[in-house]
């Protein structure tokens, strides 16, 4: 076990982490998820050594970390707001940690990171002249060049524009594949976690509510809180062929060709369009489905529908409910656009 958090408790002004237990294997990519204010960032600060522990212990390769100052832990951190040193050039920012940590062949390591992250041309620039995406790549290089045991990523994507976000996600995946560094990514975006991480922990109110393989958390949430958080309904493990996804004899048109052979697709419940008769529209996916259950929530209602023993959940307005008059056992038509299908993995 690379990182082991045992019964960790932290108490700050008006906030506490309680009985946090988590284990990460070497080279793992773990997502730490949870709603805002759940204590994810506090846990990271405890790992770095910035807040004192009230109870418990953190072990890195079996060695207890409490009592070790941040500079002796081998845990790097990348913040959402990049936290680059504004008075240093990109080159000096990235090389900052190298004078403290003796890293073998550091120039090779540096060169590799620069080329993987496409930073060679920016070395003499100052942080204030870089875009958000560039700054976050510099922050990643700075954290990784010293070959840390653990890399903590505190919502590194959430301050970026969507197109930069995709780009940086690719870089994260790429970089994780290279070294032996264990990644711990804080995010409140479940699809992001699903696309990057192998394991995940969901934190709610200062406690770890559930930890394990990320698919397990999604498919078998242990509590309503977790179920609510991972909220993306209609997630299916599928096999891809050409531009479609196959599951249980159902063929779902994606409108684009995925890179992999198998993965997950997800469709937001509000993107499913229901009708009594088949719609003649531009929507590429249209199926006949049987209503299983209708749950009314005042202004809107959730309807579970079954196609080939596959359950879809749709959200409709109460007004639409009056028109559709769905009864369990009756059939409706379900349609969605190819672009409404999210590819994950």
């Amino acid at each position: 076990m690379n990182l082991r958090i045992e019964n960790l408790g932290v108490e700050l002004d008006g906030f506490a982490l309680k009985e946090v237990n988590l284990e990460l294997e070497k080279g793992d990519f773990c997502a730490l998820m949870g709603p805002t204010g759940a204590g994810k960032s506090v846990l990271l600060e405890a790992l770095v050594g910035l807040v004192p522990l009230k109870t418990g212990e953190i072990y890195l390769d079996g060695k207890p970390l409490s009592g070790l100052p941040p500079e002796k832990r081998g845990i790097s951190i990348v913040y959402q707001d990049y936290a680059l040193f504004p008075h240093l050039s990109v080159r000096d920012n990235i090389a900052y940690g190298l004078r403290f940590r003796k890293v073998g062949r550091s120039d090779l390591r540096m060169a590799e990171l620069l080329s993987r992250l496409g930073l060679e041309a920016l070395l003499d620039r100052f942080p204030s002249t870089l875009s958000g995406g560039e700054q976050q790549r510099v922050a990643l290089a700075r954290a990784l060049v010293i070959e840390p045991e653990i890399l903590l990523l505190d919502e590194p994507l959430s301050a970026l524009d969507p197109n930069f976000r995709q780009d940086l996600r690719r870089h994260l995946k790429d970089l994780h594949g290279v070294g032996g560094t264990t990644f711990l990514l804080v995010t409140h975006d479940f699809p992001e976690a699903l696309s990057l991480a192998r394991h995940a922990a969901v934190m709610v109110n200062g406690r770890i509510e559930q930890a394990g393989k990320i698919e397990d958390i999604f498919l078998h949430p242990v509590s309503p809180l977790v179920a609510d958080f991972v909220g993306m309904k209609n997630l299916f493990a599928v096999e891809f062929s050409e531009t479609s996804a196959r599951i249980k004899g159902l063929e779902i048109e994606l409108g684009r060709k995925p890179d992999t052979e198998r993965g997950y697709i997800a469709i937001r419940p509000e993107d499913l369009v229901l009708s009594r008769e088949p719609l003649s529209s531009s929507m590429r996916n249209s199926f006949a489905a049987r209503v299983r259950e209708v749950r009314s929530h005042g202004f809107y209602a959730e309807i579970d529908l079954e196609i080939n023993r596959l359950v879809f959940t749709a959200v409709v307005t109460s007004r639409a409910l009056l028109d559709l008059k769905p009864q369990p056992g009756t059939s409706l038509h379900l349609a969605f656009k190819a672009t409404a299908v999210h590819l994950i993995g």
Binding site: E45, V48, G49, L50, P69, P70, E71, R73, I75, S76, I77, Y79, D81, A83, F85, Y96, G97, R99, F100, R101, R142, A143, I146
Partner: peptide, 15 residues
């Protein structure tokens, strides 16, 4: 910003 100091510490710099 204290974060800059935190980053420096995590990169191996003493106080």
């Amino acid at each position: 910003p204290p974060r800059l100091e935190h980053v420096a510490r995590s990169l191996g710099a003493s106080m």
